[in-house]
């Protein structure tokens, strides 16, 4: 048993550091040179800002994700339930760079009609990480 304790501790520490590093990994990914400063307040403003689609209908991040990110959202078109975005209730959020990249690309296009800049993505992540 004793000889396994070291191994268990190492695995345990590995898991903890991996989970904690993820948010920082994301900031680093969107700010590789370190010249940007991300701010939650700017992220919040952008998150709630309403944009008009081609038909003049309002859309924002909240259209699908809802006003309370600790609760489920709903896909605007299909009605499919979207799991809560807040990491405080959904541990899977912001742990997979591939997913983060995919949804930023799709959803920025849907809300803003264009891709978001690295600055905007970092700001949004700062805001979301606090919820």
């Amino acid at each position: 048993m004793k000889k396994y304790i070291g191994l268990i501790v190492i695995i345990g520490l590995g898991c903890v550091s991996y989970a904690q590093a993820n948010m920082d990994d994301l900031y680093k990914y969107y700010n590789p040179q370190g010249e940007l400063t991300f701010g939650a307040e700017r992220g919040k403003t952008l998150w709630h800002k309403k944009h008009l689609d081609k038909k003049g209908k309002e859309r924002a991040c909240t259209t699908c994700h809802g006003e309370d990110l600790r609760k489920s959202g709903k896909h605007a078109k299909t009605g499919k339930v979207i799991d809560p975005l807040a990491a405080s209730v959904n541990k899977e959020r912001f742990t997979d760079l591939k997913k983060v990249k995919k949804w930023f690309k799709r959803n920025c296009k849907w809300v803003l009609g264009r891709e978001c800049t690295d600055q905007e993505k970092g700001d949004i992540l700062k805001y979301l990480s606090q919820l």
């Binding site: 078109k77 591939k98 995919k102 690309k105 799709r106 296009k109 849907w110």
Partner: peptide, 9 residues
């Protein structure tokens, strides 16, 4: 994809 981006890697 029917009016939405469904882009994948």
């Amino acid at each position: 994809h029917f009016g939405e981006s469904a882009e994948l890697d």
